[in-house]
C-alpha cells in the first residue's frame, strides 16, 4: 500500500538541528544514516514526541504538525504505532496487557491475528522480564499494531540482537508488512535491512538530507 509522507520541518535539539524537506510517495520508507544523524529525532517528530520549530508533517492529506496553521496533533491522537529502539515495554504488565494497552476495544479477532503473525500466543501470560530480546521486540511491534495504527514507526528494531535473532525478527517484520499492509517508516544504519524492507530511503547525516530516492538506487548492493 503506497502512502505519501510529508516531512518538511526544522527541529532544534540543543546544539543539534534537523532540517528535512521531503515529500515521499512510497510503500515503506527508511531513514538511513550513521548514529547521531537525526533519524530518531525525525521519527519522534512524526510520532508527536518532539515538536519542530516550524514546518509541516503530514501522512497522506492529514496534517499532524503545521506551524503555519497552528496544527499540532497530540501523540495520543496521531494513530501512529511507535516501536522505539529500547522497546520500552511496560515492565509491570505481561505480554497480553502490553499488546492490548492501546487496543481500545479492538475485536478479539484482531488480537488473535496479531498474536498469530508474530508468534506470540504461547507468551501472552509471560512477564516482560521473562522475554528474550527478540520476543520483546515482537511484543512491542504487536502493541503498536494493536493501537489501531495507520502507520508504523520502527526505530532500529534489530539493534541489540544477535545475528540469529536479527534474522528471525526481520522475517517477522516482512510478515507484518505483508499481512497488515501498513505503511512503515523504518530507521536503520544498516543498508541490508533497508534494502530488504523499504522501497524508498532518505539518507541523513548530521541532521541534513544527503540523498533521497528509491532504496535500490541510493544504497549500494549488499
Amino acid at each position: 500500500m503506497s502512502f505519501s509522507l510529508t516531512l518538511e520541518f526544522t527541529l532544534q535539539q540543543g546544539e543539534f538541528s534537523v532540517e528535512i524537506d521531503e515529500r515521499i510517495e512510497a510503500d515503506a520508507i527508511a531513514l538511513y544514516g550513521p548514529s547521531g544523524a537525526g533519524k530518531t529525532t525525525v521519527l519522534e517528530a512524526v510520532a508527536g514526541l518532539r515538536q519542530p520549530e516550524r514546518g509541516r508533517i503530514a501522512v497522506g492529506d492529514r496534517t499532524l504538525f503545521g506551524s503555519d496553521n497552528g496544527v499540532d496533533v497530540p501523540a495520543r491522537h496521531r494513530c501512529i504505532g511507535y516501536v522505539p529502539q529500547e522497546v520500552a515495554l511496560f515492565p509491570h504488565m505481561n505480554v497480553r496487557q502490553n499488546v492490548t494497552y492501546g487496543a481500545h476495544g479492538a475485536p478479539m479477532e484482531d488480537l488473535a491475528r496479531v498474536l498469530a503473525v508474530l508468534d506470540l500466543e504461547p507468551l501472552v501470560e509471560r512477564r516482560v522480564e521473562q522475554l528474550s530480546g527478540g520476543e520483546q521486540k515482537r511484543t512491542a511491534i504487536a502493541r503498536a499494531l494493536m493501537a489501531g495504527s495507520r502507520m508504523l514507526l520502527l526505530d532500529e528494531p534489530l539493534s541489540a540482537l544477535d545475528v540469529a535473532l536479527q534474522r528471525r525478527v526481520m522475517q517477522y517484520l516482512v510478515r507484518v508488512h505483508d499481512e497488515f499492509n501498513i505503511p512503515m517508516l523504518y530507521v536503520s544504519h544498516r543498508a541490508d535491512e533497508v534494502l530488504m524492507l523499504t522501497d524508498w530511503v532518505v539518507q541523513l547525516d548530521n541532521g541534513c538530507v544527503m540523498a533521497s530516492g528509491p532504496s535500490k538506487d541510493i544504497l549500494p548492493r549488499v
Binding site: A75, C79, P84, A88, G102, R143
Partner: peptide
C-alpha cells in the same frame, strides 16, 4: 520513572 514509558503510552492513545 523513565518518561519514555509515558511517551509510549501517549503514542498508544492514552490520555
Amino acid at each position: 520513572v523513565d518518561r519514555r514509558y509515558e511517551q509510549i503510552a501517549a503514542s498508544l492513545g492514552a490520555g
